[in-house]
């Protein structure tokens, strides 16, 4: 870990301004991913702006009947909130499926969205990685590489990493919106659908945030009801990232929404695939995973995704 200077501002706009002004600045919230990466010198901030003094740790009700979640609300607090449990159970299920009690006590809402891939080559600084060092190559795509956990769709020739979050998959299904403040003090809203970027030729660019821009809230629209489930598939029963996860909201008339985790560089969902839900898991996945480019090692994720949804739909 490189040496860095540290400050803990008290105002979100001031924090954003400082982030844009100080060379090599980085926001620090829960720290559960950033510090991990700093120890390995994958992240090397010169200046750390600790946002834990900004407030932003409340969940309030919006005029449209939804909820506005402060970026510093911890995963534990969010999953346990009575309104979330009652009206957005998918979100509670997804959060509880991720990480551990200890990590969820520190991990924050905004930080969870910003966590970086767990691709083992991204994590090993001896290996080429276009996300870590643009232009260095992708070890995961080289002959003999270990790619079982990596992405099957939305990937590129430069990067096949996945986004590791469970929470974000649920939020994508719930049509969440990210609220930010920019270094000039402006606020803006970014639908979660547009928040994470596909890698293309620039896998180092992961989100729509501008330099210094700070997430302040994540907003959930009014509850959509239905049966909400999150099925996370992994090798061991807990404390593991998803091989595949499926977030499902299913209405009484058979319509609904489906989002996938563990398969793509962002939570994976499409309106066209949602529209196929009444036609069953196979119909959904043939649309949702159309154009998938798996490796030999992770092609099973396509079958697995379909069978997982079939289980949730109780298809036989």
């Amino acid at each position: 870990m490189r040496a860095f200077s540290y400050e803990k501002p008290a105002d979100p706009a001031a924090a954003a301004a400082r982030a844009a002004e100080v060379e090599g600045a980085k926001f620090l919230a829960g720290g559960t991913n950033l510090l991990d990466l700093m120890k390995l010198e994958i992240e090397t901030p010169l200046h750390v702006i600790d946002v834990n003094g900004l407030g932003l740790d409340e969940i309030t009700e919006t005029e449209e009947g939804g909820l506005r979640i402060g970026t510093l609300v911890t995963n534990t607090a969010l999953s346990a909130d009575a309104r979330i449990r009652r009206d957005y159970p998918l979100l509670t299920r997804a959060i509880a499926a991720g990480a551990t009690g200890q990590l969820r006590n520190k991990a924050t809402t905004g930080g969870n969205l910003l966590q970086r891939t767990r691709c083992p080559y991204f994590y090993d600084t001896n290996q080429p990685c276009n996300k870590r060092v643009p232009g260095s190559g992708c070890a995961a795509l080289s002959e003999g590489a270990f790619s079982r956990q990596l992405g099957v769709i939305g990937t590129s020739d430069a990067c096949i990493a996945t986004h590791p979050s469970d929470m974000a998959v649920a939020m994508r299904a719930l049509d969440a919106v990210v609220e930010t403040v920019t270094p000039t003090g402006m606020t803006r809203e970014i639908p979660l659908e547009e928040f994470h970027l596909l890698p293309g030729d620039t896998p180092e660019q992961e989100t729509a945030l501008m330099p210094g821009e700070l997430i302040t809230h994540v907003r959930l629209p009014a509850p959509v009801g239905g049966v909400q489930e999150y099925h996370k598939v992994r090798d061991r029963a807990s404390y593991a990232f998803a091989l595949v996860s499926v977030a499902l909201i299913r209405q009484a008339d058979g319509s609904g929404r489906v989002a996938l985790g563990g398969v793509a560089p962002k939570p994976w969902r499409s309106d066209a695939a949602d529209a196929e839900l009444p036609n069953g898991a196979s119909a959904v996945m043939s649309v949702l995973l159309d154009g998938a480019r798996p490796t030999e090692e992770n092609a099973f994720k396509i079958t697995l995704a379909e069978r997982t949804l079939a289980a949730m739909l109780k298809e036989s």
Binding site: P120, E143, A145, F146, Q149, F241
Partner: peptide, 18 residues
Amino acid sequence: ALDTGRGFFANHDMANYE
């Protein structure tokens, strides 16, 4: 997880070796 091209075990931490 052996990376046969690079000759090392790629999942060398406690998150990836389960």
